[in-house]
Design a protein around this nucleic acid. Structure first.
Lengths: 220, 220
DNA sequence: GTATATAAACTAACCATTTAGTTAATTCTT
DNA sequence: AAGAATTAACTAAATGGTTAGTTTATATAC
């Protein structure tokens, strides 16, 4: 097994191996997402990645391991972006709204992500719990801190911070989770540019009015 | 195959067949929910229902058909309850908050439901779409109407009604979808009585402040 | 005597995983 | 720099366990 070498001078050398591994992960994600762990066919993943089926086992211990890797891949990227937003300076208002915007945009770009994400939340298992603990928990804690800060400073209503984090996720994620139902209800593509913009605005408004003491104040 | 006879005089005669069928559906629900369609074992379902495996095929065409039936069972019950709430007289405020309360309580009672429900939203397929169209769409439309009514009467902010329906579902559903993560984050049972009550209150508050022009007004 | 059930053996297909080997790239030797 | 040695990347084809669905034979209830 090759080691993918990350030079310490700040850039990554992409070996052939890295590319193949990435190709497998990329191909596997939507397949796991639509079919579930048990429903996904290794053959289908291999052929989508244009590699031999056995290569999956060259790079990953098992189908299960590949599944975990796919989820972790996406979650760590999300957590990276979240950290960026949550550690930037600015008012609680600005930070929270920026986080929601980032989260929404991230999900907009990866239609299959909510299904994958949902499986993580729902199916549990020790491997997945480890991943959630590592990537999701810190983001949650950061958000709770921001909300606490906002309550102290009088920007926010006296909400329960943990509950509020759940609400923020719910508002953002559900649009994408329910995309197929939305298509049914509104007879239009939920991933259409304009609809996405509309939804994003609607979430931000809902949050402003739902959480902030002075909803109408401008940003900053 | 027997016909389960529902007398037209308003009550259902429970034949032995009905009971067995119901037992299978009840046993199958949590198994499909945890393992997915492909991951669920027919053998496991049969033994959980205390019936012979062959009996599954006596009552249902296939595993797929059973899966559909399980989802429809729950969805039609939800839609029945929703209709009750949404057609009762009262202000938009009262009706919307009652709907949310009903939805929340319904989900509280069936821990495995969100996973099942999520599969419906996510995996599509013509069979499932039919079910969504039949049971979910009317509820959605009713909610949209109520929200439109609320905007006209000045009770509600000028929100987009469809988006708002999505938000209401998101707020309610996500708590249960993310239950395992909530357990992680707060180190407590999300299905505990007190936590449920707290969450419900938090949702209702969020909605009151987020949607209503005069959040603080008493109910009715 | 028809609908509802059980038990248990069966099968046909499926599918994750392994094996045994090939090809491509890199390093080592002289 | 030629070629030998070594390792990494990859493949085609089998293996072997699993499992949805069937069948056959038998039993009991209504």
């Amino acid at each position: 097994m090759s080691a993918s070498i990350s030079s310490s001078s700040g850039f990554t050398r992409h070996t052939r191996s890295d590319k193949t591994r990435a190709a497998i992960l990329t191909a596997a994600a939507p397949i796991f997402s639509t079919n579930g762990l048990a429903g996904a066919r290794t053959e289908a993943i291999a052929s989508a990645a244009h590699v031999n089926k056995a290569l999956l086992y060259y790079y990953f211990k098992s189908k299960d391991d590949l599944h975990r890797a796919v989820i972790e891949e996406h979650l760590s990227e999300f957590s990276r972006r979240a950290d960026e937003v949550l550690h930037a300076p600015g008012s609680v208002r600005k930070t929270l709204l920026a986080f929601i915007g980032m989260h929404f945009d991230y999900l907009s770009g990866i239609p299959y992500y909510p299904r994958l994400f949902h499986r993580l939340l729902v199916s549990g298992g020790p491997g997945l719990e480890r991943i959630a603990r590592k990537h999701l928990l810190p983001v949650g804690r950061q958000l709770v801190q921001q909300i606490e800060r906002g309550i102290e400073s009088g920007e926010l209503r006296r909400v329960d911070p943990v509950q509020t984090v759940i609400s923020l996720f719910g508002l953002t994620v559900h649009y994408f989770s329910a995309a197929s139902f939305i298509r049914l209800m509104s007879n239009a593509d939920p991933y259409d540019r304009k609809r996405l913009a509309k939804r994003k605005k609607e979430i931000l408004d809902f949050v402003r009015f739902g959480l902030f003491i002075h909803p109408e104040e401008p940003l900053e």
